[in-house]
């Protein structure tokens, strides 16, 4: 299952249908990695949008410029486990929807293929969002092939590093359950707005017993 999770393509349409049923709008983008092979060998390709996606998001941003700016943008990336996205993303987003402060604007959900964590920076920059959370399939383990990671970045721009992000990992029924993960994310979002930053400077001081780790200190990103 772990090997399949890496190589099976994400069923983008059925995910979009699920999110539409939750009353959400979706956009679809693709990284510069054309296929799985180049995705695995060239992480730099997975961190940037392809040309079509860039112009698509630019057009979208132009057409919607009059709307209220996005407070929290959610990007869903296949990462290393399409299985994680299929099984966790819509459920986690539903929990986030039910907890989000009423005055916040949640932008359209951006579904990204062949994506790595930093791809969300470019998406966020183009859509002019205050914060972006990348929901991405983590590296699959043998008995944990469907684990989702969440990476929050405040004021994200191309070139942000892991030191600028906070990470919530192991989101799955047997790990950190969806409701708890959503609660954590929103605690982090509010703290990020208060401190006007995310990453190493933002430590988890929530009283819920945290599962948030600032990304640095790990040898590599787990996406």
């Amino acid at each position: 299952m772990a090997r399949d999770a890496v190589h099976l393509a994400l069923d983008v349409n059925s995910l979009a249908d699920q999110l539409h049923a939750q009353g959400l709008k979706t956009l679809q983008v693709h990284s510069r990695a054309t296929d799985r092979h180049s995705y695995l060998l060239r992480p730099d390709f997975g961190r940037r949008l392809d040309e079509t996606s860039v112009s698509f998001l630019k057009d979208y941003s132009r057409q919607h410029y009059a709307e209220k700016p996005i407070d929290l943008l959610l990007v869903v990336g296949d990462g290393l486990s399409s299985m994680a996205v299929t099984q966790q993303a819509a459920k986690l987003i539903a929990e986030i929807q039910s907890r989000i402060p009423p005055h916040w604007t949640l932008g359209p959900i951006v579904i990204a293929q062949q994506a790595r964590v930093a791809l969300a920076d470019e998406v966020s920059e183009l859509l002019n969002a205050r914060m972006v959370a990348m929901l991405i399939g983590e590296r699959p383990g043998l008995s944990s092939p469907d684990s989702l990671g969440v990476y929050l970045t405040h004021n994200a721009k191309v070139g942000c590093t892991d030191a600028d992000r906070n990470c919530i990992s192991n989101v799955r029924s047997e790990g950190l359950v969806h409701a708890a993960a959503a609660k954590k994310l929103l605690w982090l979002c509010e703290a990020a707005i208060r401190m006007q930053c995310s990453g190493v400077a933002l430590k988890d001081e929530s009283d819920t017993g945290g599962f948030i780790a600032a990304a640095p200190g790990l040898l590599v990103e787990k996406e």
Partner: peptide
């Protein structure tokens, strides 16, 4: 650890 919460 999964956390970096100091009390945990």
């Amino acid at each position: 650890p999964a956390t970096d919460n100091l009390s945990a």
